[in-house]
Design a binder for these strands. Structure first.
Lengths: 176, 176
DNA sequence: GAAGTCATGTAATTGGTTACATGATTGA
DNA sequence: TCAATCATGTAACCAATTACATGACTTC
């Protein structure tokens, strides 16, 4: 596992919780990590292959049923995951097209800018509701240690999105 | 300008304010857009080329001095920029390695997680100070219309970063 | 005259995504 | 039986970044 691309660690991290198929890994990413990470089949399946060749994961083909391929993490995989987890973070990146369009608002005009803010606000409100539901569910099962860490990331989403909504109000005032 | 990659519009947007060289475009991105966008020479110079071939920008080579190539936007470029600005936003994306590492905190352990939170907090505090300076400067020159839109994006940064710091406190409490 | 910045550009690589192909299983 | 979902995989593409190469101008 010479290369350091993050999808390696996303997969190892998810497998460190429980054995999963490629398909299930994709679902976990879309459900639990979607706020701060993404990944496609086109990166997941090939990465599972190389992780197996490098002895970081083991595969087990179901003999009955659909013949699913269930991957689990090896000791070596767990070690490499831990090593990466301890390293300082390299990059936290925000890429908001909304802000890009607002920055060029002089060309777009006030009405157009307000439309973007409106759309943004609605999307954030919806997402926030979901996050608040996740958080409420996680709070109920905090006895399990890992849930604490999931909750941490959900709370990050909640705090951020509340701030975004707060900003929407400010922005509308500033423009009116 | 058949393809829709965003760097096209970043450049057109910056040139809609004033004529610039490729080098200056890079600086503007790093200074004013860095919170929500990025771009490298390897994408800027080739894009300027194709934008010129498509009649969206015009170049003017300085005869004296260093022979800088100064680009300015054409009417066609301005039109295409406006068209894009009016379209709904396609993607607002956050990619925070910090949150990824926290999500796998079960494997890393409490101390490790706290270290990441600490590092994150320090970085955000520094950035926030800068944003607050920018905002203060912009508030002084709000008579110029475009500054309002710059301020909007800076304020987004400020609100977000304050929320992040608030989350850091919550997180530390939750873990202790 | 050396270091730093200004300035333009390119080749190789990266870290993916998208779209497609294929087929089994499940539930209405 | 038919749509939806489960499940695996690949080929082509893409929007960049990184690292390098080159050289002029400025400032100490």
């Amino acid at each position: 596992m010479a290369n350091e691309k993050k999808i390696n660690y996303v997969i190892l991290g998810l497998l460190s919780h429980e054995p999963l198929t490629g398909y299930e890994i994709k679902k976990k990413i879309d459900q639990s990590l979607r706020f701060f990470w993404s990944g496609s089949y086109g990166s997941i399946y090939p990465t599972l292959d190389t992780l197996e060749k490098d002895g970081c994961v083991e595969k087990k083909e179901e003999s009955s049923g659909r013949g699913k391929i269930i991957y689990s993490i090896t000791e070596r995989g767990r070690m490499l995951l831990k090593e990466w987890l301890m390293k300082p973070v390299e990059k936290d990146e925000l890429r908001y097209e909304t802000l890009l369009k607002l920055f060029f608002g002089g060309e777009l005009g006030k009405e157009g800018v307000l439309t973007h803010i409106q759309r943004f606000e609605e999307k954030i409100k919806q997402e926030l509701l979901l996050f608040e539901m996740y958080a409420a569910n996680l709070e109920k099962v905090l006895d399990e240690e890992e849930h604490k860490y999931y909750l941490l990331t959900v709370k990050f989403g909640i705090e951020s999105y509340r701030a975004f909504l707060n900003w929407c109000e400010q922005a509308k005032t500033l423009l009116s």
